[in-house]
């Protein structure tokens, strides 16, 4: 169960906004890079975000460059889950690979900055504790849940030496 406070973002948050190109030289120092996470979308976000907080955004979150540093620094900053109306493909894949859970939810407009949420990934529910509402979402496919449960694909491969079984 994931529990946390909401930071609200709009549509089309690109990986250039999450991990700006001008900090290219910090890519090998993710802790330092994380001090700038999302700063072009919300000033001081990195300073204010608390461990366990949840990002809620509009459509096409993570579009643009394939830089895996983007989901990595979101996770490093303490964010426990990103909820969005939709995700760009490479970002989605990268986030699962590094163990950052993502939720695709249509009703993001009903969630406000500062709301407290509780997310059940296995059963596919988001509870807005502040507003007393429960939403259902399509659970993450089993193949990817197996990767998330090991906190990312690097751990999974280390442990099993291969990918999870694909259904035949």
């Amino acid at each position: 169960m994931i529990k946390g406070r909401v930071w609200k973002f709009g549509d089309d948050i690109s990986t250039d906004l999450i991990a700006p190109g001008r900090y290219f030289h910090l890519r090998n120092d993710l802790v330092k890079l994380a001090e700038h996470v999302l700063e072009d979308a919300m000033e001081d976000f990195a300073k204010k975000v608390q461990k366990g907080d949840i990002i809620v955004a509009g459509k096409n979150f993570g579009l643009g460059s394939s830089r895996e540093h983007a989901p990595r620094i979101i996770k490093l900053a303490g964010v426990s889950c990103v909820i969005a109306r939709s995700f760009a493909r490479i970002f989605y894949r990268n986030a699962i690979n590094i163990g950052l859970p993502l939720v695709v939810l249509e009703e993001v407009n009903e969630i406000e900055q500062g709301d407290e949420l509780s997310i059940d990934l296995e059963n596919g529910t988001v509870e807005n504790i502040t507003r007393g509402r429960i939403y259902k979402f399509e659970p993450i496919p089993d193949f990817m849940m197996k990767i998330l449960r090991e906190d990312g694909i690097t751990n999974y491969i280390k442990k099993y030496g291969d990918f999870p079984e694909v259904a035949d």
Binding site: G64, S65, S66, E68, I90, N97, I98, G152
Partner: peptide, 26 residues
């Protein structure tokens, strides 16, 4: 390729796609 514009090579009739660093490590 660990670069989103890896899709460029698709113009040669290949299936070419961008992924993250860890995917390409695998």
């Amino acid at each position: 390729g660990a670069d989103s514009h890896t899709c460029t090579s698709g113009a040669l009739g290949a299936f070419a796609t961008g992924m993250g660093s860890t995917d390409v490590a695998i």
